[in-house]
C-alpha cells in the first residue's frame, strides 16, 4: 500500500464527488496552481448564509482532485462564517496522508478556491 496514494485517495480521484457545474449558483471562483498549471473552479449555492450545494470543476493531480472531492462532502452544510475559519491544517488532516512541502499546494488548492469564492481572500490558506 502506497503511503500517499491510498485506496480512498485513488477512489476520490477516479470518481470525484460533487464535480461538474452548478447552475444557478451564488458564488464562484477559479484558481490556478502555479506549480503545475492546474486549474480548479467552484460553484457554490448559498441559503441562509450556509453552503447548501457546491461543485468543483477543473483538472489536476490525484492529490488536488481527491482533496477537492473529500472537502466537498464536508463543505456542504457549513455556514459561510465556518468556511472563513478553515485553515490549511483542517484540509491536511482531512486528507489524512503525509503531504510533502512541494505537494502542499496541490492539497490546498480547493480550499483556496472555496475561501476565495466565500470571502474574496485569494491568498493561500495557512
Amino acid at each position: 500500500m502506497d503511503d500517499l496514494y491510498r485506496d480512498y485517495i485513488l477512489d476520490h480521484y477516479k470518481q470525484p464527488r460533487n464535480f461538474g457545474e452548478l447552475e444557478p449558483h451564488d458564488l464562484e471562483a477559479l484558481e490556478h496552481n502555479p506549480l503545475c498549471g492546474d486549474e480548479l473552479g467552484v460553484h457554490i449555492r448559498v441559503c441562509d448564509e450556509r453552503i447548501v450545494d457546491l461543485r468543483f470543476q477543473g483538472h489536476g493531480c490525484a492529490i488536488s482532485q481527491a482533496a477537492a472531492s473529500i472537502a466537498s462532502e464536508e463543505l456542504k452544510g457549513m455556514t459561510l462564517a465556518e468556511v472563513e475559519q478553515l485553515d490549511a491544517d483542517w484540509m491536511i488532516d482531512l486528507l489524512g496522508i503525509p503531504v510533502s512541502a512541494t505537494r502542499r499546494k496541490c492539497a490546498l488548492l480547493n480550499l483556496k478556491v472555496v475561501r476565495g469564492a466565500v470571502t474574496g481572500d485569494h491568498a493561500w490558506p495557512t
Binding site: D2, L4, Y5, C36, G37, C61, A62, I63, R103, C106
Partner: peptide
C-alpha cells in the same frame, strides 16, 4: 495519470524527472 503523480511515483525508485508546464 497526472504528470505530478507520475513524477512523485517514479521518485520512489530514485528516478528524478520533472513534471509541470
Amino acid at each position: 495519470l497526472h504528470p505530478h503523480d507520475v513524477a512523485e511515483l517514479v521518485s520512489r525508485s530514485g528516478v528524478c524527472i520533472r513534471a509541470g508546464h
